Deep mutational scan, measured.
Amino acid sequence: NCLEGLIFVITGVLESIERDEAKSLIERYGGKVTGNVSKKTNYLVMGRDSGQSKSDKAAALGTKIIDEDGLLNLI
């Protein structure tokens, strides 16, 4: 459970895995996936064609922004 207690938001199109697979992977390792960035969000996983508003909010809140490889490296 290397992601225990961590909260993730996924945005954009992921290249190597589907969004549902990424969500399942995060949950399997103890993390939680939500739909919107908040002060409780630990990581924003940004894929291709992701919206600017979520990354702006993450930056404003100090949320770590990672890509798909960054997510896989956490596991």
Rank of each mutant, 00 (worst) to 15 (best):
T11Y: 07
L72W: 11
R48Q: 06
V13F: 11
A59E: 11
I7P: 03
K40N: 10
S55H: 14
V37F: 06
F8T: 03
D69R: 13
E4H: 09
A58T: 06
G5R: 01
L74Y: 00
C2P: 06
I17E: 06
T41A: 06
G35R: 15
L74N: 00
D20K: 12
T63C: 14
K40E: 14
I65N: 03
S16D: 07
S55G: 11
V45I: 09
D49R: 12
I10V: 13
D67T: 13
N36T: 14
Y29F: 13
Y43F: 02
D49P: 03
N73A: 11
K39F: 06
K64R: 10
L61I: 06
A59C: 09
D67A: 03
I75S: 00
G31K: 00
E68F: 13
Q52D: 10
G31M: 00
E15N: 09
N73D: 12
I26Y: 00
K23Q: 11
E68M: 15
D69K: 12
L3N: 05
D49A: 10
K57Q: 11
D67Q: 06
T41N: 00
S55K: 15
R28G: 09
V13G: 11
K39N: 09
L72F: 14
G62K: 06
I17P: 07
K23P: 02
E18C: 11
T11G: 10
R48P: 05
D69A: 14
N73W: 04
K64Q: 10
L74Q: 01
L25F: 04
I17A: 08
T11P: 07
K39Q: 10
A60V: 10
L44G: 01
A58N: 04
L44P: 01
G70V: 04
T41D: 02
C2Q: 07
K23C: 10
L71G: 03
I10N: 09
Y29M: 12
K54P: 08
S50E: 09
T63L: 09
A59H: 13
K23E: 11
I17F: 15
I17S: 07
L71P: 03
S24T: 12
D49L: 08
I17H: 11
G12L: 01
F8D: 04
D56K: 15
L14K: 06
I26V: 05
A22P: 02
E27W: 03
V9I: 01
K64V: 06
E18W: 00
G12Q: 00
E18N: 14
I7D: 09
N36S: 14
T11S: 14
N42D: 10
S38F: 01
E21L: 06
V45K: 00
K64P: 10
A60K: 12
R28A: 10
R19L: 13
L74A: 02
S38V: 01
L44T: 03
K39P: 14
T34G: 09
N73M: 06
I26L: 04
A58R: 06
V45R: 01
S53K: 14
K23D: 02
G51K: 14
L44F: 04
T11V: 08
E68I: 15
A59F: 13
K57S: 10
D49V: 08
L6R: 07
R48K: 14
V13P: 13
R28M: 10
K39V: 09
F8K: 03
I75M: 07
L44R: 02
R19W: 07
G51M: 13
V9S: 12
N73E: 13
S16F: 08
G62M: 02
L44H: 03
L3R: 02
N1L: 06
G12E: 04
D49G: 14
T41S: 05
G70L: 02
R19E: 09
F8S: 02
